[in-house]
């Protein structure tokens, strides 16, 4: 019942998303270490609500409920370097030829500013359905890269 109430309280688009997409375990992407701050979230699904491109959602299937809005960092910085060190590739069971998914976490700030975390992207190996968040020693891009200013309201 509590779950239903939460569902009813959520926005319309969120309900459509939940109605239209089966969030089953077979689509789960494993995050062996969780995400920093969400270490108990070990399985996520990635899905794209209709019309929301280029945004996608990364939603936790276990641990505390957490949904992250994500975007390919190259959509924001076209020459963003999607290059993994050997050590990082091993984490994902990937080799140099593996096609990997790169996702920057998006923040919608209280004043409507859209910012993306380009310092610590999430990288997913679709072949192994395994992902993790890259934690760079010396990030060339900021944790908070402003994509759009606060001028426009996010709600109708």
């Amino acid at each position: 019942m509590k779950h239903m109430n939460q569902r009813l309280a959520s926005s319309r688009s969120e309900r459509l998303v939940d109605a239209g997409i089966v969030l089953s375990a077979q689509h789960a992407i494993r995050f062996p270490g969780g995400l920093p701050g969400f270490e108990a979230c070990r399985r996520f699904v990635l899905f794209a609500p209709e019309g929301a491109s280029p945004f996608q959602y990364l939603k936790s299937l276990e641990g505390p409920p957490a949904s992250f809005l994500v975007i390919d960092p190259r959509r924001i910085v076209p020459d963003y370097p999607c290059v993994l060190a050997e050590h990082d590739r091993q984490q994902l069971g990937a080799d140099a030829d593996s096609v990997l998914l790169w996702l920057a976490l998006v923040m919608i700030e209280p004043d409507g500013t859209i910012a993306a975390n380009l310092a610590a992207p999430v990288v997913i190996n679709p072949a192994g359905m395994i992902g993790y968040q890259l934690i760079p020693q010396d990030a060339a891009y900021p944790l908070r890269h402003v994509v759009a200013g606060p001028d426009y309201p996010t709600s109708e």
Partner: peptide, 26 residues
């Protein structure tokens, strides 16, 4: 570094009301 990424992740974990409107702002 780890703490700052935790903090950024917590700020990113907010639900978004309207993704379609949001994508138009990019």
């Amino acid at each position: 570094v780890y703490a700052s990424i935790c903090e950024a992740n917590r700020r990113a974990a907010n639900p978004v009301p309207d993704l379609v409107a949001l994508s138009r702002r990019l």
